[in-house]
Write a protein that binds this DNA or RNA. Structure first.
Lengths: 225, 225
DNA sequence: AGCAAAAAGCCAACCTGATTGTTTGTTATC
DNA sequence: GATAACAAACAATCAGGTTGGCTTTTTGCT
């Protein structure tokens, strides 16, 4: 379970958007695709997966539906790209922010937790969450989403592990802490609108953070099962 | 923040379904409404809110669309009833299961946590989660869902508090423990399909459970903020 | 280098199917 | 006779995908 994949984030960079093509058409194509993906993200997080229509995406991207369907032949193709794009973008920013932390901020203040929380508030994760939820009941989406999501989870785990060397003495505790952090934070995110007292949400985040610190220091042991 | 509402669950029992009406028509009406609500629950958790069409609900309930629209004039009316019904039903069963626990199971083994987890796996909560998620982006649904959900949260908190007297010495810790439990467990639920190793999910639940016990015993203090 | 053919980006109109709510009608109960 | 439970047909809307056409860029041939 604690095998550490050696893949890197750059291996995951979405294809077709990476480098600037030589000729005009390629550049134009990439630019349009990016506009479509960004519009899809806005659509997903604002209107949800159900109301994310091809018409609305095209409208928000500033092109015609025909043009959009030229770049992404079917809606499913587009959604598959959105899955990859949103995960990659969020991870990219997340890892960059983690990398900017001083060792004191990271190790003593556990600032990575707060940065993770911030990454859940982005448009990218908003869209990703919509897709994750929709994939629970939409068989077609599920087939494209689940394998990717499982892969991404592994990748995220490995990348974060590399960025937090203070955990390397206890990979088992790290695994648990990651699961714990993801579940707790995303559960909190779900209830953001329902729990409308801010202090209450802040307190929960603080508790999760200190619990993770205690897990790292060994003050709390992972249950044997 | 720690004011304890004194409302009870029975006050929340959905109207129009409670008692057995005297005449044939009333009984028949209640029976049909129940069939519709149960069909809607199945629809929601199996196909998601987006694909929960009136046609499909009627079909699963074994009646015509016309008959269904006689009982619930609009889809919104039906959904509002589903929100109330699913919450009430889940809470009813949850509290009953809690009440069946011995004091040892409840206090020492923290068996309430596992029962809460079980309540998240029910059809009722599956449907409720769909509505909760859809309410994030659907303005119309949001308006009917959010006030109810906020009310239910308070109610749930008060009911559970009454059922777990061992927490009464520290209401602040109880509030935090509830938030923590809800967020962690529902976050885990979200990732059930993605984290496909069962032992891993069991370990996380165990960790949440022991953490809550430590919070109750005072071994962990709520962060001051 | 010049030019025609091919391809790419883009758009508008159309088609099919699905969904919601309304309306009209039928049967059984009050 | 009035009302309630139920059913079926209808209208309006909107989704996704296809087709054909237009403009610009690229390619290949002479």
């Amino acid at each position: 379970m604690s095998e550490l994949p050696t893949m890197t984030l750059t291996q995951l960079e979405p294809e077709g958007l990476d480098s600037e093509g030589q000729n005009w058409q390629q550049r134009k194509s990439i630019q349009t695709r990016l506009a479509i993906l960004e519009a899809a993200i806005d659509c997903l997080q604002e209107h949800g997966f159900a109301r994310t229509t091809t018409q609305l995406i095209a409208q928000m991207a500033g092109i015609s539906r025909g043009a959009m369907l030229h770049h992404y032949a079917t809606k499913q193709d587009l959604i598959a790209s959105v899955i990859e794009y949103t995960f990659y973008r969020r991870m990219e920013n997340f890892m960059a922010a983690i990398g900017d932390l001083s060792e004191g901020e990271r190790v003593d203040r556990n600032a990575g937790i707060e940065i993770y929380w911030q990454s859940l508030l982005t448009r990218e994760f908003g869209a990703y969450l919509e897709l994750m939820m929709a994939a629970r009941t939409d068989a077609e989406l599920r087939e494209t989403f689940l394998p990717k999501a499982r892969h991404y989870e592994q990748l995220e785990r490995a990348e974060v592990f590399r960025a937090f060397p203070e955990w390397q003495g206890d990979p088992g505790a790290y695994e648990l802490a990651m699961d714990f952090c993801i579940a707790g934070m995303q559960g909190l995110l779900l209830h953001r609108d329902i729990w409308n007292e801010r202090e209450r949400r802040v307190r929960l985040r603080g508790f999760i953070s200190t619990t993770i610190l205690m897990l790292r220091s060994g003050e709390i042991k992972a249950p044997v099962g």
